[in-house]
């Protein structure tokens, strides 16, 4: 009970602090939003200049953006435990947090929750704006999205705690953490169901990292609307309609024989994300990372107190 109360008190303190700093440094806050928007627009244009239909281009763009946002989410949470923790040691804040009677784990849970909340709100706004720009519909499934975001958060927290534990003892792990964080952005962007076709080793590495299955599930829910293609008795996808592929000027693209190139729109059926293979990997990875993360963080915290490195940097 003490730790639950502590979590909410620290949560309140962190939210108030974040708001005060955001309000006080409003110019920096606006600049960061503009920078974020500019980055997303660059990615959108990059993705939309690949030769395919308007529909496909829009889907690819949204897929990329969503992956990017999930990657940034992971980047931020893991960053809080790596560079963030290192910075706290440098300013002396880490020792102050360690002096809190709620313990380091409760404090970091609350801190990361605030960071995640801010990230999710800003990412949602960005995603909606970009989707409007490319005229792509997003599927809002509140329960599924909330469950998936929560699981993603728990997963990342577990992983973050493990990284944070290492930073507590070995402060100079920053560059290694940066590589891992960028790898997570890359995985989040390119993670699709096609992962099952990857070589065995790459597939397991991808599943082991906490962001891959989370990205697959979120993309499946938000972009595909939990729709899977239907197949006939012969195992072929059932085509619902054919649509001409248009060029950037809006004219149909013709093949060598002068016929318009057609895009197949397949028959789909609803299949809940909770029955998706990646959802089970996500839950598994949540359990494993949370257990490993918190256990290793506690171990490293004690080791760090033995070595006296809490205030060192």
């Amino acid at each position: 009970m003490w730790h639950i109360n502590g979590f909410f008190l620290v949560l309140k303190a962190e939210i108030v602090r974040a708001f005060i700093i955001m309000r006080r440094y409003w110019f920096a806050s606006i600049i960061s939003i503009i920078m974020g928007y500019a980055t997303l627009i660059t990615i959108v244009y990059g993705l939309m200049h690949t030769p395919s239909s308007v529909k496909e281009m829009a889907e690819k763009a949204i897929n990329g953006i969503l992956g990017f946002l999930i990657g940034v989410f992971a980047f931020g949470i893991v960053g809080l435990f790596s560079q963030g923790l290192q910075g706290m040691a440098r300013t002396g804040e880490l020792e102050q947090v360690c002096l809190s009677p709620f313990g380091l784990v409760t404090n970091f849970l609350a801190r990361s929750f605030v960071a995640a909340l801010g990230n999710i709100v800003s990412s949602a706004i960005m995603l909606i704006l970009v989707a409007k720009t490319v005229a792509e519909n997003l599927h809002v499934a509140p329960v599924e999205t909330l469950v998936l975001l929560s699981l993603t958060y728990i997963n990342l927290i577990g992983f973050g705690f493990m990284v944070g534990g290492l930073v507590l003892v070995f402060k100079q792990t920053g560059q290694m953490a940066v590589i891992v964080r960028f790898a997570m952005i890359g995985l989040a962007i390119f993670a699709t169901e096609k992962i099952s076709q990857w070589p065995m080793f790459a597939r397991w590495v991808a599943h082991a990292l906490p962001v891959t299955d989370a990205a697959i599930c979120l993309k499946y829910t938000i972009i595909q609307g939990q729709q899977v293609i239907k197949y006939n008795e012969l195992g072929e996808p059932i085509v619902r309609a054919l649509e001409p592929v248009l060029d950037s000027a809006g004219k149909p693209i013709l093949d060598a024989l002068g016929n318009p190139v057609m895009n197949r729109i397949y028959e789909t059926t609803f299949s809940s994300v909770f029955t998706h293979e990646s959802f089970f990997f996500l839950i598994l990875s949540c359990i494993i990372w949370t257990a490993i993360g918190i256990a290793s963080f506690r171990f490293m915290e004690n080791w760090s107190r033995d070595k006296g490195t809490l205030g060192a940097y």
């Binding site: 303190a13 108030v16 002396g92 804040e93 809190s100």
Partner: peptide
């Protein structure tokens, strides 16, 4: 505990905000 130097306070906040923040961290509300 007051550790050496003035590294223990949060510089962008005011003294009152600092006390409210650290008070919460120590379980006072």
């Amino acid at each position: 505990v007051v550790l050496e130097g003035t590294r223990t306070v949060i510089w962008p906040l005011t003294p009152l905000e600092n006390l409210n923040y650290f008070g919460n961290l120590r379980g006072i509300r």
